Amino acid sequence: MLNCRSMRVVVIVSGLLLAAGLLLGLVAVAAPLTMAYTQMALMLVLAGAAVLSVAFVDALLPGADQRLDGCQH
């Protein structure tokens, strides 16, 4: 179960994974070893989406409104 602080960290980590995947995808276009970089970029983007979806599902669980009620956003 995530609290306010860990939810914030999860969202930031997810954004960083997505950004790293996109940047590596741009590098993959110009790099000679395209296949390795492309696969790593895809894994980073999918990991970012998976982390964000875990946070979303956790926010939908019963009792999440009480845990996340005091969050300042």
Rank of each mutant, 00 (worst) to 15 (best):
L61R: 15
L44W: 05
L33I: 08
T38V: 04
G48V: 05
L23E: 05
A55M: 05
A49D: 00
R5C: 00
V10R: 13
A19I: 09
L44C: 14
T38Y: 00
G15H: 13
A20H: 07
M35F: 12
D69C: 07
A47P: 06
L17N: 07
V13A: 14
G15M: 12
F56T: 15
A49F: 08
Q39V: 08
M1K: 08
L18E: 09
A41P: 05
V57C: 12
F56P: 02
G70H: 09
T34H: 14
V27H: 09
Q66N: 06
T38S: 10
V27K: 14
Q39W: 10
D65Q: 06
L18T: 10
T38E: 00
L61C: 04
C71I: 05
A41E: 01
G21V: 04
L42N: 10
T38G: 11
A49V: 15
L46H: 09
L60V: 07
D69I: 06
R5E: 00
M43D: 10
V57S: 13
G48A: 06
A36E: 11
L33A: 13
L46I: 08
S14C: 09
T34C: 06
Y37L: 12
G48L: 04
C71E: 13
A47M: 10
L16A: 03
L42K: 06
M7N: 03
V10T: 14
V51H: 11
C4I: 03
T34W: 05
V10N: 09
H73M: 08
A64I: 00
A28W: 01
C4F: 02
R5L: 01
M35Y: 12
S6C: 03
A41W: 03
L16M: 09
S53I: 09
